[in-house]
């Protein structure tokens, strides 16, 4: 149960972060609030996992799951980012 709640929080937090990056709304206050919200969600998720699994395992599981969730979220929702001209950075 704790795992599911934590998982949802990770997905929500990352989804929010992706959305802020994608849309970049004008109001700075809203942006700060959104970043804070996603950070808080991730922190609470980490806390839940660490509480449920113990410090060492919880931390490592969290460090593994966040990249995986992030990849999933970014692949699903992050794709309409601004296009940037590619430079051949001096190969």
């Amino acid at each position: 149960m704790t795992g599911w709640v934590a998982w949802m929080l990770v997905l929500g937090g990352l989804g929010l972060a992706v959305r802020v990056r994608r849309r970049s709304p004008r109001s700075a206050l809203w942006r700060v609030a959104a970043w804070a919200g996603s950070g808080l969600a991730l922190a609470v998720a980490a806390g839940l996992w660490i509480g449920a699994l113990g410090v060492e395992v919880g931390l490592v599981v969290w460090l593994a799951l966040v990249p995986l969730s992030a990849l999933a979220v970014v692949a699903l929702f992050g794709r309409r980012g601004p296009r940037r001209a590619e430079k051949p950075d001096g190969w």
Binding site: A17, R22, A70, V74, G78, R79, G81, E86
Partner: peptide, 17 residues
Amino acid sequence: RDALLLRWPRGRSARWR
């Protein structure tokens, strides 16, 4: 900054990158 975006550019090599 970039980690939260997956750009989907035109060219395949750019997309690969």
